[in-house]
Design a protein around this nucleic acid. Structure first.
Length: 574
RNA sequence: GCCCCGAUAGUUCAGUGGAUAGAACGAGGCCCUCCUAAGGCUUAAACGCAGGUUCGAUUCCUGCUCGGGGCGCCA
């Protein structure tokens, strides 16, 4: 929806060869200049004239009944328009679309597959690991919102050296609990480093697993599922959910890999090295030659015949490709970039299509409030913020506030709100940062709930709900003829509301949702300005009361839709 | 050494080939007889360095510096 697009028609009509789409509209830098700014750079280029000249010519032209005044300002044309008429259209469109407002149906009739999270079953997820889940889940919401038929996959790494060691260490622990697994995992890895015999036992166990020994498989499955359940419980608190769980162990010795090996042999790219490992020479199949053969060799199998991660992953990628989605996405940490390129090269060589990868950078822990020092999170070193710990602390702090503000609500409702606020705090703080930048995680800042935070946005919605409750009667979904929203605060908010579809469409193309986070924040800020400047319930006329109440409802709907994409819920009160 | 990403107020993040580069935290000064102060108002404060392309570059390109990630038996 661009409410101003029909202003383009009279302009385009006046100049042969100009299409309405050549003319863009946007908010002017400030409302003193005008209500709407017309961007003429593209049109001027097409007409081979200077933008300023075109603007000057248009300032004197008839631009239709809704344009009150047109003023050229250099290359820009600023319009003073019938604000009320546009306001009515915008609010009407939002209230009519409801939870779908912002979607353009870009995925209608298309199928998509997204794989995300896929963390090793070894510990409770920390905030850094959870970035994958938050980005993946948010993208999944975006694709569904735009109409894609979407399947969310989780690749369960239930096999491999580290899991083997963990299973070995868990051997005589009948009553093993989820929160003990990390310590066990760390100990097992440390022991394997120091004790070759223990490490050898781990590989033996792994070999038995690969051979399909039923007893061994059961032992692996037991440990893996215990861990997976624990992890999913924590991720579930964030509102993250999956449709399919694909176990890595199902992709051992997959016959679909035979043609892949054939394709490699055909280019003489597959060889057994002098230590009996099965290796791919990627340069022979088109991988760029780099200094010191960086990234050139890709090991598929160990000397003892057991498979490497990449081997199984090839089969998994072929399996996912076979599900026939129009769009096949995988969310990966930036540490997987080289690896993913290697895998893609091998798949491509065999005529397969690798999934489209979306990468994100690590989350770093900020060390102190006013310095830029930070540390990397390391599960083994224990300097991590566990997602569950953050949620616990944030929920407790939020609960204390809710107890003051909403003491009339049931304890259960209060708990729900506190949990929503906690989720809003983490998801917003992580999702608002561009994926390819490191996130500095500042525990203190994220627990304060003030400033540029998820809770600030949620709070603005709670204020809207409060107004709408006090409005008392049922609010009509259709704006009345008399819709006198004309102040700057109202207009600035309306311009922002009308922009959601553009933001969402842009996100889909860019495979990111961080602009939505920024958008939600800006919208909440503009609402707050409106809130302070424009009384709703005590407005001068009944028509104005209703129009402002409807603007409130439209704002709430818009922010709620944006927050939905981020996986953040909107409490009725807080 | 090589490859990939990043660099914007003291700090954490936005943003754009073109109109005065937006917020927030922190610092100073204010505001609850006013629809929720998890709020608002106000003061000070920024595009790493050097070239290039362009009418115009913080944005695009190159080099440098600094930070993050990676480069055959982890997943």
């Amino acid at each position: 929806m661009n409410p101003f697009q029909h202003l383009a028609a009279p302009i385009a009509a006046a100049y042969p060869g100009l299409e309405p789409d050549d003319i863009g509209f946007g908010p002017p830098p400030n409302l003193e200049l005008g209500d709407v700014a017309v961007h003429l750079f593209q049109a001027a280029k097409k007409l081979r004239t200077a933008p300023a000249k075109l603007a000057a010519a248009l300032a004197g032209a008839d631009l239709g009944p809704r344009v009150i005044e047109a003023q050229a300002a250099g290359p820009y044309l600023n319009l003073r328009v019938d604000r009320a008429a546009f306001a009515r259209e915008i609010v009407d469109a939002i209230l009519a679309s409801g939870p779908c407002f912002g979607a353009s149906g870009l995925g209608a009739g298309k199928r998509a597959l997204i794989e995300h999270t896929s963390i090793n079953p070894n510990a409770s997820p920390h905030i850094g690991r959870a970035r994958n889940a938050m980005i993946g889940d948010s993208l999944a919401r975006l694709f569904r919102f735009e109409g894609f038929d979407l399947e969310v996959h989780y690749y369960v790494n239930d096999i491999g050296k580290q899991i083997g060691l963990l299973v070995l260490a868990a051997a005589d622990r009948e009553d093993l609990a989820f929160d003990q697994i990390l310590r066990l995992y760390v100990e097992a890895n440390a022991r394997a480093e120091a004790d070759p015999e223990f490490a050898a036992q781990g590989f033996d166990l792994l070999a038995k697993m690969e051979e399909g020994d039923p007893d061994t498989r059961a032992r692996f499955r037991k440990v893996v599922d215990l861990c997976l359940r624990g992890q999913l419980g924590v991720l579930g608190r964030l509102g993250v959910a999956y449709d399919c769980f694909d176990y890595e162990s199902a992709y051992l010795k997959d016959p679909r890999l035979d043609p892949v090996f054939e394709a490699l042999r055909a280019k003489d790219a597959l060889f057994v090295d002098d230590e009996q490992r099965l290796v791919v020479d990627l340069v022979k199949i088109g991988y760029p030659q780099q200094k010191r053969d960086a990234g050139r060799f890709f090991v598929l199998m160990r000397a003892n015949g057991s498979s490497m991660y990449g081997y199984r992953d090839l089969a998994y990628n072929i399996d996912k490709e076979g599900r026939g989605a129009d769009l096949n996405l995988v969310i990966l940490g930036e540490d997987h970039k080289t690896y993913q390129r290697q895998i893609a090269q091998i798949l491509d060589n065999a005529g397969h299509r690798a999934p489209e990868a979306v990468y994100y950078a690590y989350i770093l822990l900020k060390e102190s409030r006013d310095s830029s020092d930070s540390t990397k999170m390391s599960t083994r070193q224990g300097n991590v913020v566990l997602l569950s710990d953050f949620l616990d602390q944030a929920t407790a702090l939020a609960a204390a506030r809710v107890a003051e503000q909403c003491h009339d609500l049931s304890p259960e409702d209060q708990r729900t709100i506190a949990a929503q606020v906690a989720v809003g705090a983490v998801r917003f703080s992580v999702l608002r940062v561009s994926p390819n930048k490191n996130v500095m995680f500042d525990m203190e800042a994220n627990l304060s709930f003030t400033g540029d935070t998820g809770p600030y946005i949620q709070y603005s919605c709670a204020r809207i709900q409060s107004i709408l409750r006090k409005y008392g009667k049922e609010l009509p979904q259709i704006p009345a003829e008399e819709f006198p929203l004309t102040t700057d605060a109202e207009w600035a908010l309306l311009l922002k509301l009308a922009d959601l579809p553009n933001v969402v469409a842009g996100c889909l193309n860019q495979r990111t949702t961080s602009p939505v986070a920024q958008y939600a924040l800006e919208t909440a800020r503009l609402f707050t300005t409106f809130y302070h400047e424009c009384p709703v319930l005590t407005a001068e006329t009944p028509a104005l009361v209703q129009a402002r109440a409807q603007l409130c409802a439209a704002t709430r709907q818009t922010i709620a839709n944006a927050l939905y994409l981020l996986g953040i819920e909107v409490p009725e009160r807080m």
